[in-house]
Design a protein around this nucleic acid. Structure first.
Length: 275
DNA sequence: AGGGCAACCCGGACGC
DNA sequence: TGCGTCCGGGTTGCCC
């Protein structure tokens, strides 16, 4: 599922493709994906330009020349494609934005959405999100303060969007592996050294994933060689029964807070942290 | 505060 | 090929 690195990748690639371009046509094939009537939605978009794309947590924000914003959350299984009707994937497209020379397709929006919001509503909508883990203002001291005041399990805490935003089921496992900490540990049992290791692992894993295009394999456009490049670099996620690339042990899958959780029992032994 | 749990949603995978 | 069934999973909100 798209998490921070995937959305950051989309932001970068889409920025190169569509910034400054005018939306000339809009197709809404699923009313539930949007927050107004199709008629209003189309009217608000037609003739407007996309002047900037921002990312906040797992959301993308398309800034429109009208001053309004399109807020995208892909949720489960949502993805995008940019191209034309000849090369686009043979899938149901919930929303299509057409520019002069290219179309942006929104695919797999089930619980995902594309909402038209003014600045106030946008700020309100995003106000409960925790800090951006890659923002320079998110220091180790911030991280330490947040985690030391918590009592939940490590993985559960990492994916809680109110605590830190942007990390989901895949990268939480990869981060725990990188830090060599078992995801089931309660966070307030982690000492300063392990918290520091965790903080660094968050940075390392997310930055690396971004630079390699994230782990979702569907290309954004014809000839896109970047998107999905991190998939082959995953060390634990979806690797149940496979060999640990660090120690040769076997990756296991457990259920943790109703979620799949993958880790290496040999590398990630710490479940009563004292260090 | 944190855990449990249900609801949301439907394309696509799978079975026959 | 075709039809029916079921699953996945981030987020929200409510309860304890």
């Amino acid at each position: 599922m798209p998490e921070l690195p995937e959305m950051e990748n989309y932001k970068k690639l889409l920025t190169n493709k569509i910034i400054g371009k005018t939306i000339i046509d809009i197709e809404v094939n699923r009313e539930k994906s949007i927050n107004t009537s199709s008629t209003d939605f189309i009217q608000e978009l037609r003739g407007k330009q996309i002047v900037k794309i921002d990312r906040r947590a797992k959301h993308l924000i398309f800034r429109l020349s009208s001053g309004k914003n399109l807020l995208l959350h892909l949720m489960l299984g949502g993805w995008m494609y940019i191209g034309n009707d000849n090369d686009s994937p043979n899938r149901t497209k919930q929303v299509i934005l057409s520019f002069q020379d290219i179309k942006l397709y929104f695919i797999g929006l089930r619980l995902g959405y594309l909402h038209m919001l003014d600045e106030n509503d946008l700020v309100t909508k995003l106000s409960d999100l925790g800090p951006e883990p890659l923002d320079p203002s998110f220091t180790f001291e911030n991280f330490q303060d947040i985690f030391q005041s918590r009592r939940g399990k490590l993985k559960t805490t990492l994916i809680d969007q109110k605590i830190i935003s942007g990390i989901g089921n895949c990268y939480s496992d990869e981060i725990c592996f990188e830090a060599k900490i078992k995801p089931t540990i309660t966070v307030n049992s982690l000492g300063k050294d392990r918290l520091f290791s965790l903080y660094n692992s968050i940075q390392t894993v997310l930055r690396n994933a971004i630079s390699l295009g994230g782990y979702m394999e569907e290309p954004l456009y014809l000839g896109d060689q970047l998107t999905g490049g991190y998939n082959s670099h995953l060390l634990v996620y979806d690797r149940e029964g496979k060999e640990c690339r660090r120690c040769g042990g076997t990756i296991v899958k457990i259920e943790l807070s109703f979620r799949k959780c993958f880790y290496c029992p040999d590398c990630q032994k710490v479940d009563i942290g004292l260090i």
